[in-house]
């Protein structure tokens, strides 16, 4: 079962009792089918999954296959072209420096954003998990950025990090810096600012995944740790983190997919060119530039880059799984 390797990683809300037992024995060792399966005719499972498989197959997988086909053609946005060109798009892609720059930016984005999005929401969930007065208010407030409109948020962030904005002004008053930090005109800083925006918007979103996972970490483990003299930090590292490890993997994969797809944040903060000289463009940004211009767009080439993005995403998912199972050993 090649797939069960993944299936294990995506088990959010796994009870802690199970986590401490290496789940590898459960998922990897071939073992007799559980009792229930023996009483099931072969078609029953398909009946249960039929609606999902039809909708996802027709509207998720079919367009995906279509994109793969397009990547071997020179199709144009308004329907011109469409002739088979073999691997031309792929060889062009490999030799295209702008493509590699976009790969680098996307990977950099994921490498910075994913750890933050895995750890910070967990700490946040830990902070709001305990029932104290007004905690419902805090939980809701922390969730609010998730639903905030991107357009309005962008306006705020541009103001915040501009040369004369509050962030630079504050840092200068404290004396940490002497000239404003060019958050928006330096490529690397622009990417990091965009990561900050992603994290700010994502905190509440991933917090709720952790909240439901924290519910399954046994309380007595905390009590035991506390009796052993473990402080808050050590409790976090030795009890909380192992208890929600599988959810951390789920969040890692989800935020990884999200990071590789990031477009809006860069567009909003870096403008239509994608940063100064287009140097902060991510893969989806580059796909848009390449494929969607109605006059000079090249859908075939855009599709080839989409396939590359897909491969990169799969690679990231495998990598996070590897990382996860290593911790397990």
């Amino acid at each position: 079962m090649a797939t069960d390797v993944y299936a294990g990683t995506l088990a959010a809300g796994e009870p802690a009792a199970k986590v401490t037992r290496p789940s590898r024995t459960r998922s990897r060792r071939p073992r007799p089918t559980s009792g229930a399966a023996l009483y099931r005719p072969w078609w029953t499972p398909w009946l249960w999954v039929a609606p999902a498989i039809i909708v996802i197959g027709v509207f998720g997988v079919f367009p995906f296959l279509n994109t793969i086909v397009l990547s071997f053609t020179d199709a144009r946005p308004l329907g011109g072209g469409g002739d088979w060109v073999g691997l031309d798009n792929y060889s062009r892609m490999v030799a295209d420096p702008a493509f590699w720059l976009a790969v680098r930016n996307s990977v950099l984005y994921a490498v910075v954003a994913v750890p933050l999005l895995v750890v910070l929401p967990l700490m946040l969930a830990q902070l709001v998990y305990k029932k104290v007065p007004a905690i419902g208010f805090f939980r809701t407030a922390f969730y609010a950025p998730v639903v905030a409109s991107m357009v309005a948020v962008a306006l705020v962030w541009q103001n915040l990090v501009s040369e004369n904005g509050p962030v630079n002004t504050a840092l200068m008053q404290v004396g940490i810096i002497h000239s404003p930090i060019p958050f928006l005109s330096d490529t690397t800083l622009l990417l990091l600012t965009a990561v900050a925006l992603t994290v700010w918007k994502g905190l509440g979103w991933y917090m709720i995944f952790y909240l439901s996972a924290l519910a399954s970490v046994p309380k007595d483990l905390y009590e035991a740790a506390s009796l052993d003299g473990a402080g808050t930090f050590r409790q976090f590292v030795h009890v909380t983190v192992p208890g929600v490890r599988l959810t951390m993997l789920l969040v890692g994969i989800m935020s990884g997919i999200g990071s590789l797809r990031v477009f809006t944040e860069i567009y909003i903060l870096g403008g239509a060119t994608g940063g100064v000289g287009g140097q902060a463009r991510t893969l989806p940004f580059y796909i848009r530039d390449v494929a969607l211009d109605p006059i000079s767009g090249n859908v075939g080439y855009g599709a080839a880059i989409s396939v590359a993005l897909f491969v990169l995403t799969i690679g990231l998912a495998v990598a996070s799984h590897k990382l996860g199972s290593k911790e397990e050993d």
């Binding site: 367009p63 995906f64 279509n66 994109t67």
Partner: peptide, 13 residues
């Protein structure tokens, strides 16, 4: 099938 359907940017499909 589930994993694949999650991984494509919406613009390209």
């Amino acid at each position: 099938v589930l994993i694949i359907s999650m991984m494509f940017p919406f613009e390209s499909i």
